[in-house]
């Protein structure tokens, strides 16, 4: 393994590497967002207070049961298997799914299954006093959720979402089994053509590391921004900003 070889591989293949990395990032970001939304939905559904026996509560229980089944299946099986089942399963019905779409669906559903628990935990951990204060000024459950609880949950689940994003950047490599042209798949073709496996994959390794490192720094920065200062400077001018 030598530095010269790495350089020449890069010189020859950098557009492919970049395209692969771009694809990896695109899949990771989109599927994390989808997953977070799914998780948010399930988390909210799981924490709706049930009132006695009503049609609504039975309906809700059925939905929650289905959602639990989904979470268990996607958490309990390997993503690589899910990718095969989704992609070839749908292909068996004569409909060829776009590979990129299949990738985003699989990773998104997978992320959603994990996020659901984080969100539920995030909602449960909000102080009861926040609900009571909202109730006391006449807000309904829905309003309380939208204006008071969920904004705080967002902040609480941000670290978990960040972790998930980093995992998705790495784990999207398994999607090469359904020939999605992400970074790992791209590297496979590059190495397959030049037979320099070690060097080709070393480059890939560094690219993954850069992506995950930058992602984690950005998220840390966002968290800090959201938290703001611990002390408040009294402003002398009366120009207060509106929200």
């Amino acid at each position: 393994m030598s530095f010269d070889i790495i350089l020449s591989i890069l010189q020859e293949n950098w557009p492919s590497y970049l395209r692969g990395a771009y694809m990896t990032l695109l899949i990771a970001v989109i599927s994390t967002i989808i997953g977070a939304l799914i998780g948010l939905f399930i988390g909210v559904m799981h924490t709706i207070p049930l009132r006695k026996k009503s049609v609504k509560s039975i309906f809700l229980k059925i939905i929650n049961f289905i959602l639990t089944v989904y979470v268990e299946i996607f958490r309990g099986t390997p993503m690589i298997v899910q990718a095969m089942v989704v992609f070839y399963g749908i292909a068996a019905y004569g409909y060829e799914m776009d590979r990129f779409v299949a990738a985003v669906v699989v990773v998104g559903l997978n992320t959603g299954a994990y996020m659901a628990e984080y969100v539920r935990g995030g909602i449960v951990s909000i102080d009861k006093g926040q609900y009571e204060a909202a109730e006391a000024i006449g807000m309904g459950h829905f309003q309380t959720m939208i204006h008071i609880i969920l904004p705080q949950v967002f902040r609480n689940i941000l670290p978990a979402t960040g972790n998930q994003l980093i995992m998705n950047i790495k784990d999207s490599a398994v999607l090469s089994v359904i020939s999605v042209t992400e970074l790992f798949f791209t590297t496979k073709s590059i190495a397959g053509a030049n037979f320099r496996f070690a060097e080709s994959y070393l480059i890939t390794c560094i690219m993954y590391l850069i992506m995950t490192f930058v992602a984690s720094r950005i998220l840390r920065y966002v968290e800090k921004r959201m938290d703001g200062q611990n002390a408040y400077q009294v402003e002398q001018r009366r120009e207060e900003q509106m929200y």
């Binding site: 006093g129 204060a133 705080q152």
Partner: peptide, 22 residues
């Protein structure tokens, strides 16, 4: 109930200010 509650102002022992708002 919600309308009725707006006629009552409640102050809690633990303040319970909305943490996400200024």
């Amino acid at each position: 109930v919600r309308k009725y509650r707006t006629h009552l102002g409640m102050v809690f022992q633990q303040f319970n200010l909305f943490n996400n708002h200024n």
